[in-house]
Amino acid sequence: MTTAVAHTVALDAVRSLAGPGGHLMPSAALSTLAGVSAGDWARFAAHWDELTLDTYMADGGTYRYRRYGQFELDAQGELTLLPHAPYRQESEINPLNGGIERFLDPLTDSFAGDPVLRSVLVELGRIFTAVDGTRNWNVKLHPYRINASADEQGQPAPEGRHRDGVTFITSLMINRTNVTGGESGVYTDEGDHLLTTTLSEPGDLLLGDDRRTLHSVTPVQPADPDLAGHRDVLVIAYTAR
């Protein structure tokens, strides 16, 4: 039964990405596909406590913590962690923070080797190969913590509605603590709305064909203004080799 369900989960994603270009995969579906339990998600979330301040925010914000790293994923489903390097987007893609090399802290060894991460990356690669025909991928990983307080709201997508200049883009919910907002939207190039969702459960996943769609996320604020809050996500970008 689990194998049949996993096949259906993957097929639904393939159809949506090959069609409109956006797809929401609820936590239960991804957990079945990747063989991840609720306890696994909770353990995996601890890596987000090791993120460091992003000092490259052109809006002056101090709300974003992150790390960065990249893998190669080959046709056999083998992942190879690449040497750490600066992250760069051109300003045409990211008008806020693009046009420079950003020397971000690398992924920790424990994060890069985590079995939850590796299972998710391989299963997503299979979905994207089924859509695109590409068998080898560059996979860039962006674990983010967006903090929110009474003094500063958090901006998960400070550049507004955008694309990332890759082949497929995903946003994986890890945890939400004392925050409201954070509504994700996916749109066509012409601005037509494809879907809107608020990722809320650990393992909720939003997927998009970055060549044909734009995406955005609304700001987050603390639900209880007397306490700080945060939104933890893993953005994963697949670029065809």
Rank of each mutant, 00 (worst) to 15 (best):
T188P: 06
P143S: 01
A130V: 15
L199T: 12
V120T: 06
G154T: 10
P86R: 01
E50N: 09
T8M: 10
L79D: 00
D59P: 14
E123Y: 11
D192V: 12
T239Q: 07
Y187C: 15
E50P: 11
T108N: 04
V235M: 09
Y144R: 04
L194Q: 07
E190R: 10
P158C: 00
T197L: 11
R67W: 11
L33D: 08
N147I: 13
V233Y: 08
R145H: 00
P202F: 09
A75D: 09
T180A: 11
L73A: 04
F103S: 00
E90L: 13
A237L: 13
H7F: 13
L234Y: 02
G69M: 02
A223G: 10
V179F: 04
L24Q: 07
H7M: 11
T213A: 07
L17P: 05
D59M: 10
E78T: 06
R102L: 09
T62E: 15
L214N: 03
G61K: 01
A148P: 14
Y87N: 02
Q153N: 11
A46K: 04
V235Q: 05
E50Q: 07
S27Y: 03
D151F: 15
D59A: 12
T3A: 15
R163M: 11
N175Q: 12
R66V: 09
G35C: 02
A46C: 12
S31M: 07
H7V: 14
G181M: 14
D105Q: 13
A42G: 01
H230C: 02
E101V: 07
